[in-house]
Computed example of a mutant assay.
Amino acid sequence: MSRSVLLEGPGRRRVVKGEVPEPGPGEVLVRVAAAGICGSDREMYEGGRPEPYRTFPIVPGHEWSGTIEETGPGVDPSLTGRPTVGEGFVNCQVCDRCRAGDTNLCGAGYDEIGFTRPGAFADHLIVPARLLHPLPAGTDLRAAVLLEPAAVAAAAVLRAAPVPGERVGVVGAGTLGLLTIQLLAASSPAELVVSDPRAGREAVARAGGATAYFHPDRLGATDLDVVVETAGARDSAAAAARQVRRGGRLVLTGIPGVVSEMLSPSMIVERQLMVTSVFGAPSAAWTHAVRMFTSGLLDLGPLVTHELPLEAYSDAVALLGQGGEGVGKIILRP
């Protein structure tokens, strides 16, 4: 038997039991080791996720790590027993965007594990084998669960294209921000400035490579070469833009929700800012994040602060909503 969390609609969830699913052609069966919870999962639970980006009923869970337990027809059977993570966007591979490498922007429409097809808040997960990123034997799967947000951070940093010796910044010291800090630190910046209202995140940010840390109300450096915004708060994009030098680069990753914020076009044009953004992560960003993790350049384990059983799904969502200084990455352990 296999357990899974079934979210039947906003706030309506139950743990169900059923037969272990069978992988079809081109698929694998993964035994889930850990599954992370993020703001998108809370959005699903509370009913705030836009209809084109969710399906009910659904087994949530898009951040996961596990072990390949069985391979379907057409999949290399030697993968059985390998630790792995995997991409969430199930892309068509043939549209213009996929062929250009933007697999997260597939023209066939949005289709993502944990949002439109069964996810990892379960004992077992079915995944197309082509989306897997197998990991070395003995990999810490508790830490590897953060490779999904690390891939998003990698997508942002690849767009930022930091050059050694540049002055860089990160707005937001949540999970995504802390991962972005580590990735930017690997580019050997002259300075790495971080802003976040939570003073308790400073030690972790500095351990990841931050050289300065300040509250958003205290405007710090205003002439940074590149700033990555990760907070997704009401005014965080505008705050990030104010920190970028004239002619500098701004990368937006956060989605502030239904309330629009003002990022002045005049500020962008008059200062000739190069503004770009990321939505999820393409395959290239996943490869970058996985390589940095397996080579020891990404330290993911310390970002996990809470581990709960599968049955405590709603408690984990509530804990995420409460936030606080001591709440980092929350994971469910089947």
Results as ranks from 00 to 15, higher is better:
Gly321Trp: 01
Glu270Gly: 05
Ala312Gly: 03
Leu320Cys: 01
Glu8Thr: 15
Leu79Glu: 01
Ile113Met: 06
Glu270Cys: 09
Pro189Phe: 08
Val75Asn: 13
Leu7Thr: 04
Phe293Tyr: 15
Asp111Val: 06
Gly174Ala: 00
Ser2Trp: 07
Gln93Trp: 14
Gly321Cys: 02
Ala241Val: 10
Ala185Trp: 02
Tyr53Asp: 07
Ala312Pro: 01
Ala155Asn: 08
Ala35Pro: 04
Ala318Ser: 07
Thr71Asp: 04
Pro83Val: 07
Pro60Ile: 01
Ala210Ile: 09
Met262Tyr: 13
Leu29Met: 13
Arg82Lys: 12
Leu176Phe: 03
Val145His: 08
Thr294Glu: 07
Ser4Tyr: 14
Ala120Leu: 02
Val317Asp: 05
Gln243Ser: 15
His62Thr: 04
Gly114Ala: 00
Thr116Gln: 10
Glu270Thr: 15
Leu320Gln: 11
Met262His: 13
Gly48Glu: 05
Glu51Cys: 06
Pro136Lys: 12
Ser277Thr: 15
Glu261Phe: 04
Leu273Asn: 08
Pro83Tyr: 04
Ser78Arg: 15
Val269Arg: 11
Met1Tyr: 11
His306Leu: 05
Leu79Lys: 09
Val327Gln: 02
Gly48Arg: 15
Ser2Leu: 01
Val59Lys: 06
Val163Cys: 00
Arg54Glu: 06
Gly48Ala: 11
Thr253Ile: 00
Ser195Val: 15
Asn104Arg: 14
Gly107Leu: 08
Gln322Ile: 10
Arg201Ser: 05
Ala240Ser: 13
Gly88Thr: 13
Thr276Leu: 11
Pro118Ile: 06
Gly36Ile: 06
Leu132Cys: 01
